[in-house]
């Protein structure tokens, strides 16, 4: 059976069930790289110039990990999923960049997703990808419909039941994601609610975010993320704050930020990486909004290749202290 490698990085968290269904429907087997490790990050970083952003370095590490494990590497170029809104240049050129810096990679299956070119081009692109497995346009059509259905189910699992992408993927595939679990389960989230905003490849990659979600849960906070909102909620919140979105996946940051700031959570933490252009602009919009509303505590956290987690922990501790001391003060005033 043909093996398709899918790196567990970048857009994996948004589209994995869709991609997996598509390839499996066409009779291929899907291989996913294991969760990020320091070795993967270093190997990815060694292939590119230092200025390349952290998520791309991580992505390349995952690709390297899959070399020798699969017959094809699936790296789509997702240019645009909404009209006139484009993706960041690193994601646009991902297949080409990977080809250039990892020449030993198995052949890369890429597909241009650009809704601006119209339906016809989109279907053509999907057919071109599926044609590698079957000559029957009908079978490709069946596979893509099944894939789309899997995607809708996946999104619904997250927005309706409040699951994170790794949890939803685990639920769908029935196999537990290889993540460290606490033996005693999580403590009761009785101190409040924190919303994390940022791209899924930062929020759910436990290596680069120092197990942020786990840390907050251990501190007795309930954690909400952008995936737990519906596309409509995200879109309308983005429209309220910035009018028209300018980058693909901006809703994860701006829309979720605006939504959660107004929803009465105790705090919002924006996660971004050092050197991400779109994020640095978008997070600033959310910060300004938070400063204007004043009701909800906001902090942005910048992740980089530091190996010690001290800096992140100090900020998180101070942020939670700020929230709890603020609450206590409000309680005193009310009495």
């Amino acid at each position: 059976m043909t093996k398709i490698g899918i790196p567990r990085a970048l857009l994996y968290y948004q589209y994995y069930p869709m991609w997996k269904t598509f390839f499996e429907e066409l009779g291929a087997e899907v291989v996913v790289s294991p969760p990020t490790t320091q070795v993967m990050l270093s190997s990815g970083a060694s292939r590119v110039v230092a200025d390349t952003c952290l998520p791309v370095k991580v992505f390349l590490g995952h690709v390297l990990c899959l070399v020798g494990e699969c017959d094809f590497m699936f790296i789509p170029a997702i240019r645009s999923v909404k009209r006139k809104i484009y993706n960041c240049s690193k994601l646009l050129g991902l297949p080409d960049m990977t080809k250039a810096v990892i020449p030993e990679s198995p052949p890369i299956l890429d597909i241009d997703i650009d809704v601006n070119k119209g339906r016809r081009d989109l279907y053509q692109a999907i057919y071109q990808l599926g044609r590698r497995f079957t000559w029957s346009p009908f079978k490709v059509r069946q596979a893509s419909l099944a894939a789309w259905q899997a995607h809708l189910n996946y999104q619904q699992l997250m927005s309706r039941y409040g699951l994170t992408p790794p949890q939803a993927i685990e639920r769908i595939s029935g196999t537990p994601e290889a993540e460290p679990k606490t033996p005693s389960g999580n403590p009761t989230p009785n101190l409040g609610t924190i919303a994390l905003i940022g791209h899924p490849y930062l929020l759910y990659d436990e290596h680069i975010n120092y197990r942020l979600v786990h840390w907050l849960e251990q501190a007795h906070y309930k954690v909400l993320t952008p995936e737990m909102l519906t596309a409509e909620e995200l879109e309308s919140a983005t429209a309220r704050l910035v009018g028209r979105a300018r980058w693909t996946y901006e809703d994860d940051v701006v829309g979720a930020g605006e939504h959660y700031l107004e929803s009465g959570v105790d705090g919002v933490i924006g996660i971004m990486t050092f050197g991400c252009g779109p994020d640095s602009l978008m997070m600033d919009m959310v910060r300004r909004r938070a400063a204007k509303l004043r009701a909800t505590a906001f902090m942005s956290l910048t992740l980089e290749e530091h190996t010690a987690k001290t800096g992140v922990v100090t900020r998180l501790e101070a942020f939670l202290d700020m929230i709890s001391r603020r609450k206590r003060r409000q309680a005193e005033v009310c009495v």
Partner: peptide, 13 residues
């Protein structure tokens, strides 16, 4: 503000 911390920042990288 009013005796409680409302925001803070630390040098980044």
């Amino acid at each position: 503000r009013d005796g409680v911390v409302t925001d803070f920042g630390m040098n980044t990288v």
